[in-house]
């Protein structure tokens, strides 16, 4: 069995807005395994993104504990979390969040300049199929291309984990599939542990493992015996 990469124990997250307390996570125990592609599914507000942010070192838990391998993230300082993100985590968001003043290559170089053992920016862009569009600015690219640059940027540092929050949310079906293919390809070729949040139930069919969320809790964990290729997914 593969090694455990993330482990959580009774994680809760409460957002205190002053008048109401929102329980975003209400006791989550979870294990994620190395080199797997995991899909988190569930309705809006069920706690998927909150969990992803905690795993990615963007947020702290209210209660409970979180480990990345043997390192406990639970009470890590802001500086420690920055270091952790820099060295181990790659993020992909629904809105691509590219720097408009930098070309595709330069956007990737943002990461390769600071990461300890990056791949060349060109290689990362080749991996997402954008070798020929490296010198284009974001405003000169389509949505799918921009999202692929964002993925290239995320994987260029050779992260151990790639966290994707609705990576196809802003894309049409054809471009969405292209992006999923890139994610799948990277997971298979480099063995990057990948976590994908989605609303789209079809996408679960390409995952190793699917985790269902409901009201801040995990309602079900399912392991896919038969995965399908992203190209077979339609929506």
């Amino acid at each position: 069995m593969a090694e455990i990469i993330f482990r959580t124990q009774g994680v809760t997250k409460v957002y205190d807005t002053g008048q109401v307390k929102v329980h975003a996570l209400a006791g989550v125990d979870l294990k994620l395994f190395e080199a797997e592609l995991t899909v988190l599914l569930g309705p809006s507000g069920s706690g998927k993104s909150t969990l992803l942010n905690i795993l990615g070192g963007l947020d702290h838990v209210t209660d409970g504990r979180v480990w990345f391998k043997d390192t406990e993230l639970t009470n890590m300082s802001d500086r420690g979390l920055t270091r952790y993100r820099r060295d181990h985590v790659g993020f992909v968001f629904q809105f691509y969040n590219l720097v408009p003043s930098l070309t595709a290559r330069e956007n990737v170089q943002l990461v390769t300049d600071v990461a300890p053992d990056p791949m060349p920016a060109e290689e990362a862009l080749e991996l997402v199929g954008l070798g020929s569009r490296m010198n284009h600015f974001p405003s000169e690219m389509s949505g799918g291309e921009q999202q692929r640059v964002a993925i290239a940027r995320a994987i260029a540092k050779r992260p151990q984990i790639l966290l994707c929050d609705e990576p196809t949310g802003a894309l049409d079906s054809t471009t969405g599939v292209q992006v999923l293919e890139v994610l799948n390809d990277i997971n298979e070729r480099i063995g990057t542990t990948t976590v994908v949040i989605t609303h789209n139930a079809e996408i679960q069919r390409m995952a190793h493992r699917v985790i269902f969320f409901q009201d801040g809790k995990i309602s079900e964990v399912r392991v896919n015996e038969h995965r399908i290729a992203p190209s077979e997914i339609v929506w």
Binding site: R79, T82, R85, F91, K157
Partner: peptide, 16 residues
Amino acid sequence: AREMASLRILGFGRGE
């Protein structure tokens, strides 16, 4: 703000 937040998420420190 979005650019700067992206950089922070990518692992850039506050100073950077």
